[in-house]
Structures are given as structure tokens and as C-alpha cells.
């Protein structure tokens, strides 16, 4: 049997995912990383994006996270997400609205702080949209 690793994804307000996977792919701050079993201990912040969990038998699950921290131990991965919501539950209209608002804020920027805020909002909205598109493609297949 293939080696597996235990994955826990939690947000402050609820538990999102708990189970075993063959490997996972995570949007770490320095770029996308793939974690396989027996990875050495690692701590890294996450960017907004989707965590993809590859389960035994080729099944794949995508979960959107809007940032957080990942801890890797050789047999356990813990993702402390800021707010993680099931990808299928994402409200596309809200994401578009957020993106529009963020772009608007980018267009008439005034302070450095606002710019940074708008940029993160934009990144979040884009990541949400990407996840939605992927889920949709999979459903229509």
C-alpha cells in the first residue's frame, strides 16, 4: 500500500478537513509546495489559494484557504487556516464583487496602507475564482 500522511485543516471557527492523503499541494508564501509523507518538519505561512489533497485512489479534493499557517511533521500536516470554506460552497458573485471592490480601490488609491489591503483582497478574490472554475470544470466532466 502506498504511504499516506494525516492531514488536518482547521479554521478558528470550525474544523474543515481531517483525513489521510497520499500527498497534498499547498500555496505557501514562497510558492506552491507539494508535501509527501515523511517530509521533514516545516513551518510556513500560506497565501490565499487552494489546498489540493490527493487521496488514495486518485481522488482529489480542493479546499480554499485565505491564508494561514502550515505545520508539517513527518506523519501529520496541520493547516491552521484563517477562514477556510469548502470550495464548492464558495459564492462566486461575492468573490466577483470583492474583486471589483478591490480593483476599484486600486484604481483610486491614496495611501500605501490601502494599496496593500486592496492587493491582498484582489489576490484572495482571484484565488477563489480559480478554485470555482476548477470545481466547475470537474463537475461538467
Amino acid at each position: 500500500m502506498a504511504m499516506t500522511i494525516h492531514v488536518d485543516i482547521v479554521s478558528a471557527e470550525s474544523e474543515i478537513f481531517s483525513g489521510v492523503a497520499e500527498h497534498i499541494s499547498v500555496p505557501a508564501q514562497m510558492g506552491e509546495v507539494g508535501i509527501y509523507p515523511r517530509h521533514t518538519q516545516m513551518l510556513t505561512p500560506l497565501k490565499p489559494g487552494e489546498v489540493r489533497i490527493f487521496k488514495h485512489g486518485g481522488e482529489e479534493e480542493a479546499i480554499y484557504v485565505s491564508g494561514g499557517v502550515m505545520e508539517v511533521q513527518p506523519h501529520v500536516i496541520t493547516i491552521l487556516s484563517d477562514t477556510a470554506v469548502r470550495a464548492a460552497d464558495l459564492d462566486e458573485a461575492a468573490a466577483l464583487e470583492a474583486k471589483r471592490a478591490a480593483e476599484e480601490a486600486l484604481a483610486n488609491r491614496s495611501g500605501g496602507m490601502e494599496l496593500a489591503e486592496a492587493q491582498t483582497q484582489l489576490a484572495e478574490a482571484m484565488a477563489q475564482l480559480q478554485t470555482i472554475a476548477r470545481v466547475r470544470k470537474k463537475l461538467s466532466r
Binding site: 478558528a12 521533514t40 516545516m42 513551518l43 510556513t44 505561512p45 505545520e71 491552521l80
Partner: peptide, 27 residues
């Protein structure tokens, strides 16, 4: 003895993590 790999570096990671730790306790 062991230590984590920190990405990008220990200070950034720990700063973010500990603030979240306190927030989660308060929440």
C-alpha cells in the same frame, strides 16, 4: 535536537504564528 525548516525565515513565521495563537486563545 531538531528544528523546523522555516519559510521564508524563522522570524516572519513565528511572528505570524504567535499572533494567531494569542488571537485563537482570546477567541
Amino acid at each position: 535536537h531538531w528544528d523546523y525548516i522555516y519559510e521564508p525565515d524563522a522570524k516572519t513565521v513565528l511572528d505570524g504564528l504567535l499572533v494567531r495563537y494569542i488571537e485563537s486563545l482570546v477567541y
